[in-house]
């Protein structure tokens, strides 16, 4: 698929789903965090859907949405401390999800059925350059949001710890002693 065709479908898809664009309230971000996360509204929706697929919500077990994994990634992408090469890698993976969706089903990822989404991500894992590494990193970031101290904005009300019966250590970090303030 050439780039022009891709852009055309992308913008059509974005327009079609504009009404459901997820709102993305920012964290109360510390001062050193600034700039642009570098993803379009449509790409945020793709990423949201990927995270939901990788770690779905269930009645008895929190999923990516419940632990604010999307916001976690937003923080990583806005963090001046995050290596620029790593940020590019994270963004490129989001783009690759939709490229693969278009290649296999001629639709954006968010327009796909569950089994098609699974096929797209498996295709990335098995066949795409850096696909597996990107998926691993997405799952790892979901785990950070699931199991890090709630003071960082994920793991709300310790939902991840409670689910897995994990006993955290003490003393736990207060807000003013988060690692980037030390």
């Amino acid at each position: 698929m050439d780039r022009r065709h891709f852009l055309k479908i992308t913008s059509a898809g974005a327009a079609a789903t504009a009404a459901t664009t997820a709102s993305l309230p920012l964290f109360a971000a510390p001062a050193q965090r600034s700039g642009d996360a570098g993803l379009s509204d449509q790409q945020w929706q793709t990423l949201d859907a990927v995270l939901d697929h990788l770690f779905p919500s269930e009645t008895e077990a929190p999923g990516a949405k419940d632990v604010k994994a999307l916001h976690w990634l937003q923080t990583v992408l806005l963090d001046d401390e995050t290596d620029e090469i790593h940020k590019q890698f994270l963004r490129a993976g989001v783009a690759q999800v939709d490229e693969t969706s278009l290649e296999l089903y001629q639709k954006l990822f968010i327009a796909l059925q569950q089994d098609q989404r699974e096929a797209v991500l498996r295709n990335m894992e098995k066949s795409k350059q850096q696909g597996r590494a990107w998926l691993q990193e997405m799952i790892r970031y979901i785990f950070e949001a699931l199991l890090s101290d709630p003071v960082y904005g994920g793991n709300p009300q310790a939902a991840g710890w409670i689910w897995l019966q994990h006993i955290p250590g003490f003393p736990r970090p207060p807000k003013e002693k988060r690692y980037f303030l030390l």
């Binding site: 401390e81 950070e144 199991l147 890090s148 101290d149 960082y152 955290p168 250590g169 003490f170 003393p171 736990r172 970090p173 207060p174 002693k177 988060r178 690692y179 980037f180 030390l182």
Partner: peptide
């Protein structure tokens, strides 16, 4: 503090 992000991830 017992902060896995501080010691071991970041």
């Amino acid at each position: 503090y017992k902060d896995e992000l501080a010691c071991c991830i970041r």
